[in-house]
Structures are given as structure tokens and as C-alpha cells.
Design a protein around this nucleic acid. Structure first.
Lengths: 123, 123
DNA sequence: TAAACATATGAACAATAACTCATATGTTTC
DNA sequence: GAAACATATGAGTTATTGTTCATATGTTTA
């Protein structure tokens, strides 16, 4: 009739081996769940080569959607969708000038993050 | 009989507006395709909160798979799969001691990248 | 060598996401 | 106001991925 608890978690070992103070340190320094999800969402933006290309383009100059599409050899629609993602993550900002919308980098962390990435992959 | 070329690319504007020297700068500073894919692959590893948690855990101490699973309240299998991804990206390294495998951080860039991310999301 | 334990991994499933296509919105010019 | 242009966006399709489940591999001890 009674179901044993340990039967429900068969894949984890029973005891933790590291010292309690390490466990405490981990819990103290671990960001809260919400921050962790925000972090993952942010890095997901960098996890696509099209978006990385757009960021590299914007390193040089602010630019309209049309020019970015031309430069990267992609459709206006595809670029616009990706700019939306970059905008939502506050990595780029924009200003309108007549029919044209100019995008530019919004954040100084972008360069550092990409540079550290480049260093890691070894280029 | 002949199909016009411009009918095949209806979504891009015809001309590029920025000056040629900007175009040249972009092409000069843009990493090559392979590097861009490697970069995207690297950031894809950071794009998951489970893997970020594992990295934060390893900030404190090297640790066995079992302890990481316990600490994060997840199955051994799930953690092992993610450690594999982290290993393949050379973000963690491991050493075997009897039945136990200890994982630790392999790269100093990890902290910088995560710290910049934290700063960006504003914590 | 058998049993117990720690870890790794293949397959399946559900969820997410990039691009395309079609179309809508916003702005300027005639 | 209509036409032309620049940009944005919803829906659909295909591809990718995180977790679970079952099981395999590797190590120690009896």
C-alpha cells in the first residue's frame, strides 16, 4: 500500500560527499532562479551565428535593417526577426529616421562577452 | 521564358546605404564562418540554466557527478548529459578517482563571461 | 567472479527556435 | 489619398535540444 520514497528517486546517490561548508558556499553564491533564467535567455541570444554577425556589423556603425540584410546576404524578414530578439534582450537600440530604422549597440558588455568567447574558442 | 533575377530576392533593398569604407571595415573585422559557428556553439552551452548552475557549483569546488545532482535536485543522468556538453566545449575538465569522477572548471573565461552576463541582466 | 556503486549513453518525447512566406504597419512623396 | 518604400510580425515548417527511461560501461569489494 505504502510506496517507498527512495523508489521514486533511484538515480541519485543517497549522500552528499563534499563538506557542508562547500554546500553552504554554493547556496550563498548561486544566483536566484529568476536571474539564472534571465542569464540563460541572454546567452541564448548569443547562441546563433546570424545574431552574432549582426552584432559584429553594429560594432562598426549604426545601420538600417536593409543594409544589414544586404551585408549579410539574408532577407529583410530574417534580419528583422533577429533584431527583434536583440532588442528584447536590450543588446541593441534603435532610432527611426523617416522610413528607415537605424540599429546600434546598446551595451558595452557585448564586446567583452564576444571577446571572451573568441578567446575561449581560440582565435 | 527568362526569369528575372530580382523576382527571386524581393525582400532586400537594392542598394546599400552606408559608405564603402564601413562595408570594408565590417568585412575586415568579421570572424570567419567557422569561428562564428564555434562562437555560437559555445554560447549555446551557456544558454541553459542547468548548465549555468553546474558552472556556479564548480566555482566553489571540484565535485563528483553524484554531488552535483544532489545539490541541484536533479537526476544523475540529466547532470551527466550536461557535463558531457560542458566537457565537449572544454569548459570543464575531469579526473577519475576509483568509481568517482570529479569535475572542475577548465577555463578562466567562464567567470568573466558569466559575470558580464550578470551585469547585463542587472543583478 | 558476483554484487554494488558511480557514471555514461542511446532512444524517445516534448518543447523551443530559425527561417520563409504572406501580409500588416508606418512613413514619405506625388 | 494612392503608390512606393522600409520595417515588423503572425503562421507554418523543419531542425535542434533537455529531460527521462532503460541500460551499458567501468571500478571496487566481498
Amino acid at each position: 500500500m505504502m510506496v517507498e520514497d527512495d523508489l521514486l528517486e533511484p538515480e541519485r546517490c543517497e549522500f552528499i560527499h563534499v563538506h557542508q561548508d562547500v554546500v553552504d558556499q554554493v547556496k550563498e553564491n548561486m544566483p536566484d532562479e529568476e536571474t539564472l533564467y534571465d542569464l540563460a535567455d541572454l546567452f541564448r541570444i548569443f547562441a546563433d551565428s546570424t545574431r552574432i554577425k549582426i552584432l559584429y556589423v553594429l560594432f562598426e556603425s549604426e545601420m538600417c535593417v536593409c543594409d544589414i540584410a544586404q551585408l549579410l546576404g539574408m532577407t529583410q524578414s530574417a534580419i528583422s526577426h533577429q533584431l527583434r530578439a536583440l532588442k528584447q534582450s536590450k543588446l541593441v537600440k534603435y532610432r527611426r529616421e523617416g522610413k528607415t530604422v537605424f540599429y546600434s549597440l546598446a551595451d558595452s558588455h557585448v564586446r567583452t562577452i564576444l571577446n571572451q568567447g573568441i578567446e575561449h574558442v581560440g582565435e
